[in-house]
Nucleic acid binder design. Structure first.
Length: 487
RNA sequence: GAUCCUAUCGACUAAUGGUUAGGUCACCAGCCUUUCACGCUGGCAAUAGGGGUUCGAAUCCCCUUAGGAUCACCA
């Protein structure tokens, strides 16, 4: 049987990192098994509709490198792929269940339902629709029901869950799960506005779209018995289920907005590479061997299996993501890196001089940062004269005789004709030897004068990238304006 | 409260009845050195607790504890 899986988000605004991982696992499973990956938009709740959310979802799914074979943006033989466009279908199937006696009409108002739950709460029993005492097809009788229907009184359709027996299903990650039927609620299938609930829509669509495996978050585990019951009621074969462990906050609760960024776009904005982000997300809850950490999308596809997905939730801690990002930073080409960072720089009006020059700077600092977005802060001196100087570093390295030493060295530096790394390095080393100086007695003061900072790439590499007159200006300026005040 | 799920270093995880319980990130130390990094070497650090089953249990079973998810005319 062909593997067909789907990612079925609801368009409520943005792509959640947990959603991205669910989509990724679906994608990896599909590609690993030469199956089909389907995108379906679950927008049956009109009150939560957000303009542009679907486009946004697709944008970041595409950013991550997850591709689809069918979906609202590309079509397919099982469309439409947006549930609101399948409106009539659900009604038809809902009615079919009523005819089969597997579902029924109910006319309770939300106030009446609230009261019911209140009563149950007080009595200490689990809140659950009581079809023996509420206002529905059974308590009202056939005639009264028809009456209300013909008067267009608002109604919902509920699933008729048997009072006896148990519901069993096999989860590919958790094994067999058993729930007593009497613990399952008479779920609303069709709302009074005629739209289906998630439960009806997802079962109908998964069946009609030929979905072979439902891979979704663990939050759906408790409602899976309802879905199993629905498949049985329709007389359809249920797909295989795999419920993924949740992504967690630091305090182990379900990953939420309140405790940090949860939108994929936030991490895009923070300068993470998609390769690093996908790699990181993939390893949160799944691991092929644990003897390696870096996987390309292709390698993820080759090694992925649902059997190796963990049962327990994983804390979304970006410490390791930062390291992964640094790994990708070191392997990408300078051209690629420049193209990546230029839009970020333009966005903050940072003058990077030229792409060619930018590439040289990146080459110098890429092993010293985890994320390219740190570049303007890490090495502003490569693009403009320093505006401030690290005082601690000055205190530490600007000694009694430093002024004297540097002034003499400065004179010689002016005479250098080949302004390149090798010349600068050899010259300085020789100068130190001849004057009985340690290299650091020159290098450290020079660094602070030229960069203003205590940290950075090799000093001679840094100097050679800058223009000779620029470097001389910086030293002169420091000697004249800053060093004097140190006395 | 009810139902369901889960439980290995601080974090991500490996070990599917036999290992000194392994790796990666983070952290700490040393080496390298031109600062900071990188790199290299080493270190810290875990089977929630209690019962079984077994020659042997992180692994299988039960109980306890803890955490989480869910209990909507939301998905």
């Amino acid at each position: 049987m062909e593997v067909r899986v789907r990612f079925a988000p609801s368009p409520t605004g943005y792509l959640h990192v947990g959603g991205l991982r669910t989509a990724l696992y679906n994608y990896l499973f599909a590609r690993h098994n030469n199956g089909k990956m389907i995108l379906r938009i679950e927008d049956t709740d009109r009150t939560r509709f957000v303009e542009g959310a679907t486009e946004n979802l697709i944008k970041y799914l595409e950013w991550s490198g997850i591709s689809f074979d069918e979906g609202p943006h590309i079509g397919g033989n099982y469309g439409p792929y947006i549930q609101s466009e399948r409106f009539d279908l659900y009604k038809k199937y809902g009615m079919q269940l009523i005819e089969k006696g597997q579902a029924y009409y109910a006319f309770d108002t939300s106030e009446e339902l609230d009261l019911m739950r209140e009563r149950q709460q007080k009595a200490g029993v689990a809140p659950k629709y009581d079809r023996t005492s509420m206002k529905n097809q059974f308590t009202l009788g056939e005639d009264k029901t028809k009456d209300l229907l013909s008067q267009n009184v608002p109604f919902v359709v509920r699933l008729k869950v048997p009072f006896e027996g148990e519901i069993k299903f096999k989860d590919m990650i958790r094994g067999e799960v058993t729930v007593r039927s009497r613990d399952v609620d008479d779920q609303i299938l069709l709302k009074s506005d005629g739209f289906p609930t998630y439960h009806l829509a997802n079962v109908v669509d998964d069946h009609l779209m030929g979905i072979s495996h439902v891979i979704r978050g663990e939050e759906w585990l408790p409602s899976t018995p309802k879905h199993i019951l629905l498949y049985q009621s329709f007389g359809w074969e249920a797909p295989d289920f795999a419920h993924l462990p949740l992504l967690l906050n630091k305090d182990k609760s379900k990953l939420s907005k309140r405790q940090g960024d949860v939108a994929v776009e936030d991490y895009v904005g923070k300068g993470y590479f998609k390769e690093a982000f996908v790699n990181f997300i993939a390893l949160l809850g799944w691991n092929p061997t644990s003897d390696r950490e870096i996987f390309s999308m292709q390698e993820l596809i080759e090694t992925f299996s649902l059997e190796k997905v963990n049962k327990s939730g994983a804390i979304f801690d970006i410490t390791k993501l930062n390291w992964m990002n640094s790994q990708y930073l070191r392997t990408k080409s300078l051209n690629e890196l420049a193209d990546f960072i230029i839009p970020f720089l333009q966005n903050i009006n940072f003058n990077f001089i030229s792409k060619d020059y930018l590439m040289k700077v990146i080459d110098l600092i890429k092993e010293r940062i985890d994320n390219l977005i740190e570049l303007p802060e890490f090495a502003p001196y490569m693009f403009a004269k320093p505006k401030e100087y690290d005082q601690d570093f000055i205190k530490k390295h600007w000694k009694e005789n430093t002024q004297n030493t540097i002034e003499k060295y400065f004179v010689e530096l002016k005479n250098i004709t080949n302004w390149d790394y090798q010349t600068l390095h050899d010259f300085t080393q020789k100068y130190c030897e001849e004057n009985n100086l340690k290299l650091r007695e020159i290098v450290h003061p020079l660094r602070i004068m030229i960069t203003g900072k205590s940290v950075g790439a090799g000093l001679f590499e840094t100097m050679s990238l800058l223009q000779q007159n620029d470097v001389l200006d910086r030293i002169f300026y420091f000697l004249e304006n800053i060093a004097l005040k140190l006395r």
